[in-house]
Design a protein around this nucleic acid. Structure first.
Lengths: 197, 197
DNA sequence: GTAGAAAAGTGCAACGACTCTACTTAGCGA
DNA sequence: TCGCTAAGTAGAGTCGTTGCACTTTTCTAC
C-alpha cells in the first residue's frame, strides 16, 4: 500500500502506530468500544498511554485509522473531472467509484456493526464527512468563479457529503446513491405509494 | 411560558434546574465554555456537581437549555399542515415562522457567538438538528403511506434539517432558507457568475 | 566513528467530565 | 403522625486527555 518508508525512524514510528491501531481494533471488536480503555490499548500494544495520544488525536480516531485523505480525493474529483462533466456528476462518479473499495475489506461487517452500535462513533463518522464541507464548497465555488461562501455551493457540498451517511445500511447502496443524486439534480418528488400488498 | 407547576416539589425542582442553567450561561458568556468547569457552575448555583448531572445530561446540554420540543413542533408542522400544502412547503413555512423568534431573544448575539466559537458546541448544535432525522422522516413516510425508511423521505428529512445549519450566519437568513428549499424542490443549478466588479 | 541535535517514547502527576454509592433532607399522601 | 419517594449531598473512583521532566533511539554532520 504505502512505500516502505525512508528512514528507520519513520518505519518504527509507523510500526508503533500500526501496533496501536491493531490492538485497538481487536479489543474494540472483542469487547465493544466503551468496554475498552486507553490503558487497555496501550498495554496490549506495549506502549504508554501518552504514546497513544502522540499518534492519534483521540479515542475515536483509533477506530477510523485509514480514512485520511478523502478530503484531497474529493477535491481532486472536482478539479480534475473530464471536461463537459457537471460537478454533481463528477461527485456522483467519485462516490460510486471509491466507496465500495473501502467497504470491501475483510471484517467490514463487524466493523460497520461496531460503528453503528456505538453512538459516539456514529457521531464521529458523520462529522468526518461533513467536516469537509468548507473545502469542498470552496473548490466548487472556485470552479464557477463565485465567492467561496456562495450559498448554492455550500449547500451542494453539504448535501453531497450527507449522501454516504444516508446510503449507509441500504441493501443496494449504489442505487441509493443514484437516487439521492437524482433528488439533488432534479428536485425532490413525493415517493410513489407501493402496490398495496 | 410554562404552567406554575403543580406541587411545591416540582416547583423547587424547576427552580434548581433554572438556577443551574442561569449560572452556567452567565459563566460561559463571561469566561468562555472551556474556561468554566462543572464545579464552577455547581458552586455558583450552590448545588453539588452530582445535582448538575441529575438535571442535565452533560456539559453541552447546559448551553442548549430551552430547545426541547422542536422535535414535536416539527412533526406537528407536517401532520397539521393545511390541506393541499406540500410537505416541503409546510416545513419551509415552519422553519421561517418559528426560527426568528428563537434568535430574537436578548443576548442572542453573544449566545450565537459563544456557540460558533466553541467547536464542541458547534458539533452539538448540528447534532441536535440531525438527531430528529428519524422521527421526521417517519412522519413524512406515514403521510405518503410508504415504509418508514423510504429513501426519498429520509433524504428529505435530513436535508431539511441541515437547512438551519447552512443558513446560520448568513446576513439574510430568510432568503437563504428560501434558496435552499428551492434547490431541494426544483433541483440544484450552477450559481450565476456575478458581474465582475 | 563520534558528538550532539531531534524525535520517539516513558512514567507520573494532574485536571475535568462523569458515575456510583451510601446517606441526609424535604415534600407528599394517608 | 408515619412512612414513601424523590431531590440533593459528599466523596471516592473511572476514564480521557494533557503536561512535564526524563531516557532512549535514530539521524546528521563533522
Amino acid at each position: 500500500m504505502t512505500v516502505p518508508s525512508a528512514s528507520r525512524r519513520d518505519r518504527k514510528k509507523a510500526a508503533t502506530r500500526q501496533a496501536i491501531a491493531d490492538a485497538a481494533l481487536q479489543l474494540f471488536l472483542e469487547r465493544g468500544y466503551d468496554q475498552v480503555s486507553i490503558r487497555d490499548i496501550a498495554d496490549a500494544a506495549d506502549v504508554s498511554t501518552a504514546t497513544v495520544f502522540k499518534h492519534f488525536s483521540g479515542k475515536e480516531a483509533l477506530v477510523f485509522d485509514q480514512d485520511e485523505d478523502r478530503e484531497s480525493q474529493l477535491i481532486a474529483a472536482v478539479r480534475q473531472r473530464p471536461s463537459g462533466q457537471s460537478i454533481p456528476d463528477a461527485l456522483r462518479h467519485h462516490i460510486l467509484d471509491t466507496w465500495p473499495s473501502i467497504e470491501a475489506h475483510p471484517q467490514a461487517a463487524e466493523f460497520t456493526n461496531l460503528v453503528n452500535s456505538t453512538p459516539v462513533l456514529r457521531a464521529y463518522a458523520e462529522r468526518m464527512w461533513t467536516r469537509y464541507t468548507d473545502s469542498l464548497s470552496a473548490v466548487i465555488a472556485d470552479e464557477f468563479g463565485v465567492d467561496h461562501d456562495n450559498l448554492a455551493c455550500v449547500a451542494l457540498a453539504r448535501f453531497v457529503l450527507e449522501i454516504p451517511v444516508l446510503a449507509r445500511g441500504r441493501q443496494d447502496r449504489r442505487a441509493a446513491v443514484e437516487a439521492i443524486f437524482d433528488i439533488l439534480t432534479h428536485g425532490w418528488e413525493p415517493p410513489s405509494k407501493p402496490p398495496a400488498q
